[in-house]
Write a protein that binds this DNA or RNA. Structure first.
Lengths: 365, 365
DNA sequence: TAGGACTATAGAAACGTTTACAATGACGTG
DNA sequence: CACGTCATTGTAAACGTTTCTATAGTCCTA
């Protein structure tokens, strides 16, 4: 194993000088640096990250905690973070929680504490206050993705606004009997996003004077399959909605498939809106509110790297500068400069239309 | 920062003893161990992984290299590996190549060399011989997932057998005009799996005396969207196949959707088979050959951990013992004990049936 | 009871870097 | 010309563990 000692020896300098030449810290005469560099190259020297981590206290590893990498959203987020980190030579340590609280606790205890992470990106993690405290106690920068976390900068989208927008779109087309498929069961039970999207829906309905029927609020789990099954039941009822707002594209497509299998025509018999911007939506012509998880990941990573750059690593930040010019879509969330909302894009395709009854009325005129 | 020194002091022992008590290596009196343990707990001690990595030479980090985490197969594989590693306290460093050769090179150079990985899992990586040599030169265990790699143990499925099986199923139903949608374009151009699945198809067709029409071999990219588009062209032709074997479920579903949109009935006008076991397949009633990427990941991880357990880390292994009782589905690959083939499961649902013409014949009898 | 085989412990030397400190010399300024 | 400043370098002390070596004690057996 060829270490920095050998390099120094070959270049005829001390290890200190060699280290300075190699790392770029401290001043080294141009000629000397060159000699060290070529010596290193000739010896095929690679610096031991362990050793330098030990003394510098920074590992160049960033932890990413996700509920489940194999879900569309999380996979994209991880890809975004990875994309950003790879360019600057940081490693990405992935912790997959599987929506399991025990796992989550284990991860928080076992890994975050092992001083080996320079920073952490919790994504869509619903932490209890004491867990949050624990996470912050490692005194490393934390940038979350998903919902806001007290005292932690986060990147996300405006769920309430998205719910409102989707609903307003349907109402605007003339729909009054609108169902909502939410993602609130099992592993995602206490995800705030579910409540917020639903709140946006209900709020908009109320504003328009449309009634929200409890039996038309369907709790699903973000999977196409489950939404399909539940939509079949819903749409088979004697009285059915003319439109469905699903809290995710996958669920929306489940609804579309269920409708098709029941012989209903989308959008004429049933309009469907989703949220996400899932690739599947293109093929199905799904009207949706696109978010950009990959960019959320990138943005979080950039924010983190920026924090890492200024060596000062505060425990928890009261308030941040320079975060106030962000696009705060709608007035749904209190202006919290810690929680950065990324823009979404409303994409109207042909899964939504004027309801059949209304269309007849219009023709008649 | 409370280190092992403080713990030792509080327990009234030397650091050596404290280390032995905490790590479980070497002998420590039961009472002493207990005292050390409680001291550690009281001081909230957490061992510095950097320091111990430095001296032991093992980092407890395993690198996983995937083309793109946000693809179904890779996400599942990563989840499987993560699941296995989390239980034994290993960290997972994720390298997302994005199907980009430059990135791939950068990763190989920058990361594998940084002695910080205890082992590497390349998944579906097509390496040039010199790259393979380089990867093995880090003298750490390597277990691949996907195709076989010379000198490296790998986990995968039998692509040729799957191609044969899918085709035989269609032929068995009476189909003769069968098209194949393969996954051979752009980022996946030189994936061996594409060729093998196609070879299985062609071989089986030949055996049955059915003709393989070049214009019915469609190169796609594993995405639903692209397969949908290409299938629309294919199925709109005056003469069209009665069945399609797609090299992945996502593409198969793209074909089904295209057929539906053209007014064709699946399975009566068109039978479709896929490969994968994608969850979407359930909703579409897709006949498919299931593979289990998550289990492939787990298996690879287990194999790796096992290698890691016996400290001896060979450079490259000529041959392995204990790997010969594996399920070698079909006679498609030379029996190579390094390449472990995991079982697949043929799931017949209702996207395949006797072709309409044949059905009429049968009725007539 | 003497000797050997263990067990439990302390002490100190690694592991491979970075960096604080000190020393040297060159250069510019009053 | 003397002195301060600055750039360059060497030396050695960290960083926080693990593990090797040595020593003292304990127990068993011949």
């Amino acid at each position: 194993m060829t270490g920095i000692k050998e390099v120094a020896a070959r270049a005829g300098v001390s290890v200190g000088t060699a280290s300075r030449a190699l790392s770029g810290n401290g001043s080294v005469a141009a000629g000397t640096r060159q000699r060290v560099l070529t010596a290193a190259q000739q010896l095929n020297f690679v610096r031991s990250y362990n050793a330098s981590s030990l003394v510098t206290g920074r590992s160049r590893i960033i932890g990413v905690i996700v509920p489940s990498v194999d879900r569309w959203y999380f996979a994209k987020v991880v890809a975004g973070i990875a994309e950003e980190l790879i360019t600057v030579g940081y490693d990405l340590a992935l912790y997959n929680i599987f929506g399991d609280r025990d796992n989550q606790d284990a991860v928080l205890e076992d890994f975050l504490m092992r001083q080996r992470l320079d920073a952490v990106v919790p994504v869509s993690l619903e932490l209890k206050p004491e867990e949050l405290t624990r996470m912050l106690s490692i005194r490393r920068p934390v940038v979350g993705i998903g919902g806001p976390m007290p005292g932690v900068p986060t990147i996300g989208m405006d769920h309430f606004a998205a719910g409102s927008l989707a609903t307003a779109h349907l109402l605007g087309l003339g729909h009054e009997r609108i169902a909502h498929v939410s993602g609130g069961i099992d592993p995602y039970r206490d995800f705030k996003l579910t409540d917020q999207r639903q709140a946006g829906f209900e709020n908009e309905m109320k504003r328009a004077g449309a009634s929200v029927r409890p039996e038309w609020i369907i709790a699903s789990d973000f999977t196409l399959q489950d939404a399909y099954n539940k939509a079949r039941s819903l749409l088979a009822m004697p009285e059915r909605p003319t439109a469905v707002f699903a809290a995710s594209d996958e669920m929306a497509i489940g609804v579309i498939l269920a409708a098709r299998d029941l012989g209903l025509q989308v959008p004429h018999d049933l309009s469907v809106v989703g949220i996400d911007g899932h690739e599947l939506g293109e093929t199905f012509g799904l009207t949706t509110i696109q978010q950009f998880p990959r960019q959320q990941g990138q943005q979080a990573a950039r924010k983190l790297l920026q924090k890492l750059a200024k060596k000062t690593v505060p425990f928890a930040e009261g308030n941040e500068t320079g975060g106030n010019d962000m696009p705060t879509t709608g007035e749904s969330l209190p202006p919290d400069s810690l929680h950065e909302l990324l823009d979404t894009k409303f994409v109207v395709r042909n899964s939504t239309a004027v309801p059949r009854s209304r269309a007849r009325d219009l023709e008649r005129q």
